[in-house]
């Protein structure tokens, strides 16, 4: 329908502007954050929030980045997220292949263990995982938190990939088998390329999830120099308690990586979300 034709009905036009209004309200927090981050604290204090700023500044971003420690926290987020993401995708594609393509004792039980674990409020695991990590000497290390993320995300990834792998026609695999292809080669050279769309969607979603994790980074890490950006922001908030312009600028900086992922991989992100819920 062309735009002109759409607006020919007054009801449709009314609905459209109602929708536009709701959308604007929805975007208000983003606009507020952007506006706050380029003002000075002083300006907001003296003029109030609703005013035309007398001075603009990018200083808040600099303060958050340098003195607020974002230059340290943000790389940490990547050091944790990337290995955990690779680990969980690789391992879950292994277990998903076994569950999707073989009949064996315990197949269904293992599948339900994975699915059930995914739904768990993960706080239930907080204390035992804290103790386990500590006992392994991995408390307050990146490896400790990477291992946990890798293991915990296995549930969701296996569930999703297993369902996807089931849709691959069996004849392709059978043909390879007859040609004398080993199972590991079938998995890596035939199944994995065919599963790539699902892996892409999953990777996008998992990146956001692991990157945005807060609980495990405050439970398994203590040293400030090791913290990812979510936990770092909480520290920042404590340090700059009155200086909201710096806090908000920091929050915006922390969001840049996920926003980039969102802009470029939006389609995969949405696919991942719906794949996960529609079974």
């Amino acid at each position: 329908m062309t735009t002109r034709k759409f607006f020919s009905s007054p009801w449709r036009a009314l609905g459209f502007f109602l929708l536009l209004l709701v959308t604007m309200i929805w975007l208000l927090p983003f606009l507020t954050a952007l506006l706050t981050s380029v003002r000075t604290n002083n300006d907001i204090l003296t003029q109030g929030f609703i005013a035309i700023p007398k001075e603009w500044t990018l200083g808040n971003f600099r303060t958050a980045w340098e003195r607020g420690g974002l230059s340290n926290y943000l790389p940490n987020s990547f050091y944790i997220t990337i290995p955990a993401l690779m680990g969980t995708l690789l391992l879950s594609s292994l277990s998903a292949y076994a569950l999707a393509r073989f009949r064996f004792a315990g197949n269904r039980l293992i599948f339900f263990l994975y699915v059930g674990g995914t739904m768990l409020p993960f706080q239930v695991l907080m204390l035992p995982v804290f103790r386990l990590t500590d006992a392994l000497g991995l408390y307050d290390t990146h490896l400790g938190i990477i291992l946990f993320h890798t293991a915990f995300q296995l549930g969701f990834c296996t569930f999703l990939l297993r369902n996807y792998m089931r849709t691959v026609p069996g004849e392709i695999l059978e043909a390879a088998r007859i040609d004398g292809c080993g199972e590991f080669r079938i998995w890596w050279q035939i199944m994995m390329p065919l599963t790539l769309p699902a892996v892409a969607a999953l990777a996008t979603l998992e990146f956001t999830w692991i990157f945005n994790d807060y609980l495990w980074s405050i439970v398994l890490l203590r040293t400030d120099a090791l913290k990812p950006v979510t936990a770092g922001l909480a520290t920042l908030q404590g340090q700059w308690i009155m200086d909201w312009t710096v806090i908000v600028a920091g929050a915006l900086l922390a969001t840049v990586p996920t926003i980039i992922v969102f802009i470029f991989l939006q389609r995969y992100f949405i696919e991942g979300l719906t794949l996960g819920a529609s079974k």
């Binding site: 064996f104 695991l125 386990l132 199972e183």
Partner: peptide
């Protein structure tokens, strides 16, 4: 199938199911 499962499943049992 057990060869495929062993590493992920052990990890999952130790870090998720066991702690539960």
């Amino acid at each position: 199938p057990y060869l495929f499962l062993i590493i992920p499943l052990v990890l999952y049992l130790i870090w998720v199911i066991g702690p539960m």
